[in-house]
């Protein structure tokens, strides 16, 4: 009877530890894990082809055959909601990468050099703050031409000030430290000091922002699609699906618009919880201040 219970593996202990310290982070991570699996295995998970129209089965209410019902084209809403996860990741991940690639070097350089480039950048960011971010994103995407690439680039570039600001503040705090001075004295070129010596010490704050920025990217891209700018139906993208569902809500076919909306909320909620947890973990001062 004395069966020895195997000690839980080390990774399980770590997960348990993080869960205890920050339940928000754990719940957010769990939600995002489910969405990631959904996006990766979508072709096997979807009961129907998400863009297969069944003209004889239009606007069918939820049933066992179609748990989330069918939309105005007779497409299976469940399959489309599952497929939508891929579109959300497909826009959010590249957009955040663009934001990092544009913002981090900018913050590194201006924080290190100071002077007029720094002044111009900060004044420019101040000016950007007076535009509602969602309207600015919509207007710029519409102006640049609503292709998928432009949606990603615009969201990324509008994100870059956030990353640049955080990195800049870190660099200003670091640039007088001994390790930077000795790197300068050893004759390293500026780019090497910035990217090899300072970057690894200054990137943490920017990384803590990535999940929250991804949440913003998911929201903006869905809003664009909802307005009909950018991704168009029948693409299984949540915002575009809500747009399709909007006209049916007031006639009672609620399932067309409600399910993609719930998926969208859940993903944004997951990313926001993950982001909140990451910021608390990586910046103990913030935790002390808000707790």
């Amino acid at each position: 009877m004395s069966a020895t219970v195997a000690p839980p593996p080390r990774w399980a202990l770590r997960v348990a530890g993080i869960t205890r310290r920050s339940p928000t982070l754990a719940i957010g991570a769990a939600i995002m894990l489910v969405f990631a699996l959904m996006a990766i295995f979508a072709p096997w998970l979807t009961p129907y082809d998400p863009i297969m129209a069944q003209p004889r089965n239009v606007l069918a209410a939820p049933s066992t055959a179609h748990p989330f019902g069918t939309d105005g084209n007779g497409m299976d809403v469940l399959s489309r909601v599952i497929a939508g996860a891929g579109w959300a990741f497909g826009i959010a991940i590249p957009a955040v990468l663009v934001g990092l690639l544009a913002g981090v070097p900018l913050g590194l350089y201006t924080g290190y050099r100071g002077g007029w480039p720094d002044e111009i950048m900060m004044r420019g960011f101040d000016a950007l703050r007076v535009f509602p971010s969602i309207i600015l994103a919509l207007a710029v995407v519409a102006a640049a031409g609503p292709s998928l690439l432009n949606v990603v680039l615009v969201i990324g570039f509008l994100d870059s000030p956030v990353f640049a600001r955080v990195v800049r503040a870190e660099v200003i705090a670091l640039r007088g430290s001994t390790f930077v001075e000795s790197a300068v004295a050893a004759g390293n070129p500026t780019w090497r000091i910035l990217f090899v010596h300072i970057l690894p010490n200054a990137i943490q704050g920017a990384m803590a922002q990535t999940a929250v920025r991804a949440a913003w990217a998911v929201r903006i891209s869905a809003t664009l699609a909802f307005l009909g700018v950018g991704i168009q139906p029948p693409t299984p993208e949540w915002g575009a699906m809500i747009r399709q569902g909007a006209e049916y809500l007031v006639t009672g076919q609620w399932w067309v618009g409600i399910f993609p909306g719930l998926a969208l909320i859940l993903m944004v909620l997951g990313l926001n919880m993950l982001g909140d947890g990451m910021q608390d973990m990586l910046d103990p001062r913030r935790k002390a201040a808000t707790r």
Binding site: A222, L249, G261, L264, V268, L269, N272
Partner: peptide, 14 residues
């Protein structure tokens, strides 16, 4: 957190 995450237009539709 929920208020931060709900899409504005979807809330209106609901």
């Amino acid at each position: 957190l929920l208020g931060f995450s709900v899409p504005t237009y979807w809330l209106g539709l609901i």
